[in-house]
Amino acid sequence: MKPENLLFAETHEWAHIAHEAGGQVATVGISAFAVEQLTDLVYMELPEVGATVAAGEEFGEVESVKAVSPLFSPVAGEVLAVNTELPDHLETLHASPYDKGWIARIRITDESCLTKLLDYAAYQKQCAAAGDDPA
């Protein structure tokens, strides 16, 4: 997926929104910028399938060599699936953050959460303001 076609949370998670079976499903992951900032990832804890998450709620964790950081759900909904191969192949996040590095698929239950997400241009601006160029 091209980052231009994704929505981004201020906390660096991305969401790709698709219409499925009368509803909206978000495929979510973390941005290339976030992966670059975290560096040397060693562990990841995924959300549980079936869990209900609120937008902005912590739904997973990732450990780099020096830091444990939370992952925040960019949307509100029910976790339909998780990328179970990802924790054993964290290098995928570097190689393919917007495709093979997806973390979870979430059935959106409250579409109003989408209005708080940024488009790619706005997200790039946020990253640049943080002192770095977005990847």
Binding site: T11, K66, A67, V68, S69, P70, F72
Partner: peptide, 19 residues
């Protein structure tokens, strides 16, 4: 970044990041 004295590690740190 670890703190070494000779080749021995004598100091280290770790972070927990929240929003």
């Amino acid at each position: 970044g670890d703190l070494l004295l000779g080749s021995a590690k004598i100091g280290g740190s770790a972070q927990r990041r929240h929003a």
